[in-house]
Simulated assay, not measured.
Amino acid sequence: MPGSVRGASAAGLADADDTALVARAQEGYTAAFEELVRRHQARAFTLAFRLLADRGDAQDAVQEAFVKAWTKLPGFDGRAAFSTWLHRVVVNQCMSTLRRRRPVPVPDDVERPAPVRTEQVVEERARGRALRRGVAGLPDDLRAALVLTTVLEQGYDEAGLLLGVPASTVRGRVARARRTLTAEMEGWS
């Protein structure tokens, strides 16, 4: 039976679909949950890193999110895809992290020593730093909506599910974030 993990070895879990793995994990089969973690950890980290702008905080948030997902898995009812549900857990963990910490500026990318750069390259780097600072300075709700829809390319509906708000609210938040960034970047056009 395709997608089934009943009686499957740990090696056979890689072929099972998420629904079958969730069902086995809900029965206490830890290898099935480990496979779900393996499948979804990279995307969960990307989401957390984009929301928190700190590698260490993102790693901690993802680890906490997976622990919470394991403990809350018995209550997962399958109305949403497992990945959507997990992303919601990650977003909630990131928002908790953001509430606990004071706002800190996003560090600029480490610049490599370079030979003489053209004026255009220098200006583009400065524009990029200004944009990153602008995104980091957005209120958490606007930044989360912008990151989910723009960076992670989620639709408004899925971003709304992850943030726990209607798609129209996500659309409004993204529009406000873009207006704010446009005003802040006005001198760079």
Rank of each mutant, 00 (worst) to 15 (best):
M1C: 10
M1E: 14
A10C: 04
A11D: 13
L13Q: 05
A14K: 09
A14W: 04
A16Y: 09
D17I: 14
D17Q: 05
D17N: 15
L21Y: 06
E27A: 15
Y29F: 12
Y29E: 13
Y29N: 02
T30K: 09
A32T: 04
F33A: 06
E35W: 01
V37P: 00
V37D: 00
V37K: 01
H40E: 02
H40K: 03
Q41L: 08
Q41C: 11
A42N: 11
F45E: 01
T46Q: 12
L47V: 00
L47K: 11
A48T: 03
F49Y: 12
L51T: 05
L52Y: 08
D57S: 13
D57V: 02
Q59L: 13
D60Y: 06
E64C: 00
E64V: 11
A65L: 07
V67E: 08
T71D: 10
K72S: 14
P74I: 09
G75N: 05
A80I: 00
A80N: 06
A81N: 04
T84L: 13
T84R: 04
W85V: 07
L86F: 14
L86V: 03
H87C: 08
V90C: 11
V90A: 14
V91K: 02
N92V: 13
C94D: 05
M95G: 04
L98T: 02
L98W: 03
R99E: 15
R99A: 15
R99P: 01
R102I: 00
P103Y: 14
P105R: 10
P105V: 12
V106H: 10
P107D: 06
D108L: 11
V110F: 15
E111F: 06
P115M: 07
T118S: 15
T118Y: 05
E123S: 11
E124L: 15
E124Y: 03
R125A: 11
R127E: 06
G128C: 03
R129S: 12
L131M: 13
R132S: 11
G134S: 12
D140W: 13
D141M: 02
A144Y: 04
L146F: 15
L146T: 00
V147M: 15
V147S: 13
L152V: 04
E153Y: 01
Q154T: 02
Q154M: 14
D157M: 08
D157W: 01
E158H: 08
E158F: 01
G160A: 08
G160D: 10
L161S: 03
G164D: 12
G164T: 10
V165F: 04
V165A: 05
V165Y: 03
V165C: 05
P166I: 00
S168I: 02
T169R: 09
T169A: 10
G172R: 13
R173I: 01
A175N: 09
R178F: 01
T180A: 14
A183N: 11
E184L: 13
E184Y: 02
M185N: 06
G187F: 05
W188T: 10
W188N: 07
